[in-house]
Design a protein around this nucleic acid. Structure first.
Lengths: 252, 252
DNA sequence: CGCTCGTTTGACTGGTGTCAAGCGCAGTGG
DNA sequence: CCACTGCGCTTGACACCAGTCAAACGAGCG
């Protein structure tokens, strides 16, 4: 346990030296570019780049606890995470997955805490901004506010759609829908090159996100693989027939 | 069909004459009080009450279509409505229910349209504000922005929780959860007097909201009634044992 | 080597869905 | 006044999707 903490600190400081954003996949899209001084050229006191503070989380590490006040605002720079809720009977429900460029809790800028916890799925590198600074910047600069708003809308729509999937799809449709949704998000970030897609979800994550059991997820995945739709192996997703995948998922 | 339209117009104009907000249950809470000039006393050009435009929808009438641009922003004054999505195979999923004081699509102020349609469940009286006016007011007055934000947060949390319920609860827990959630929202508006609660949902609405079939909802409702938890009859909900209801729903 | 973790498979169970029929009620039209 | 219709609720018989339980396997790791 202590060993993990030490390693995290070491890697954290390493990353900080390397000016991580320069190689970021989404540095020109979204909030970050607006916050960290892409427009430094015409900078005034109001548009100084915000202070960044990088950190790394190990797999299974809690990045943000439920209902705990925090002065930070997190953006995922690298890796996967997920928001989840643990029920009283021990069951888990995964509310959503977060990938590069995603914000850990959009509204926490204003509420100061988030309703549900966020956990790292892989090694996650993320950027902490100061909550108060961000809020001030958001309210000062309309284009940043718009960007934040657009993200909130996308987020809400995503959660709504997940509700439809949970409520009215069959197991194989649910799984196809989840895979497709994640594929399209990765694609939008330019994170798909060739047919092998890095895909760190375990069957238990798929199960907990779509309201199924791991045993049944296993059966359905095998069936879909045998049908030649897609296959997940060793953390790699290969979609053999995107059209069929879309057809299965697009009952919605 | 024409008859319906005529009746709607008649009632609409009637209501307009009656200065409807004076009797509103939630006039002192939420957005409305800030928008329609409770603070007219110290009013400047910026704080003039916004133009209101009342309308009535019949049961089953679509209040707001999916993905259709609108210059309006709706607040429910009276009655029940719901957001829903119709799948390709004809199935319906109900995303959320709207009651007095609820806003039809919180983000439509900025996006100009909403992803999903909203339909009247009962006779619904609602207030249309002008989208551009509201947006301007929101950005000018921090306390209105805060209020709007608080609603957005509540809304998002509600959708998230619905996801947990859909994903990880059993049928009887789902139904108990829905009933309890609605009860608590009505209660927060002071709309519960005595043990008979007006409750216009049909079994099909419960089914479509919680991902079940009407047949199974019927069975579960009867079982819960026989257990003495609650009963729905003729549009009236009677909760006989609130503690047990909470216990069933609070697996979450 | 033994441990844990994730996957896989089989046998069996059970919670929900499906199908079908009947009931009561309100509206509608002859 | 009476059929006729549509809608929502109820019930029973049955089917099936997905859950449960259990065991085995391989990979990684101390």
């Amino acid at each position: 346990m202590q060993e993990l903490a030490v390693r995290a600190i070491v890697r954290q400081s390493t990353e900080r030296v390397q000016a991580p954003c320069s190689t970021c996949l989404v540095k020109d899209a979204g909030l970050c570019s607006m916050l960290i001084g892409k427009d430094r050229s015409n900078g005034t006191a109001n548009t100084l780049p915000l202070a960044q503070n990088f950190a790394i989380a190990q797999p299974r590490e809690i990045i943000c606890r439920a209902k705990q006040p925090s002065e930070h605002f997190y953006v995922i720079c690298e890796g996967w995470a997920f928001r989840f809720h643990r029920l009283q009977n021990g069951r888990r429900h995964i509310l959503s997955f977060l990938i590069v460029g995603d914000v850990v809790s959009n509204f926490s800028i204003f509420t100061g805490s988030s309703e549900f916890a966020t956990q790292a799925l892989t090694d996650v590198r993320f950027c902490k901004f100061d909550r108060d600074q961000i809020r001030a910047r958001l309210l000062q600069k309309p284009e940043i506010f718009e960007e934040w708003l657009a993200r909130s809308v996308v987020m809400l729509r995503r959660v709504d759609r997940a509700g439809v999937a949970l409520g009215r799809l069959q197991a194989h449709e649910k799984i196809a829908w989840l895979i497709l949704q994640l594929r399209d998000r990765l694609d939008a970030n330019g994170m798909i090159n060739g047919d092998a897609i890095e895909f760190p979800l375990r069957q238990s994550h798929i199960a907990d996100a779509m309201g199924l059991t791991t045993v049944h997820v296993c059966r359905v995945l095998n069936s879909l693989r045998k049908q030649g739709v897609f296959a997940i192996e060793d953390g790699v997703l290969r979609i053999s027939d995107l059209a069929v995948l879309r057809r299965i998922a697009n009952v919605m």
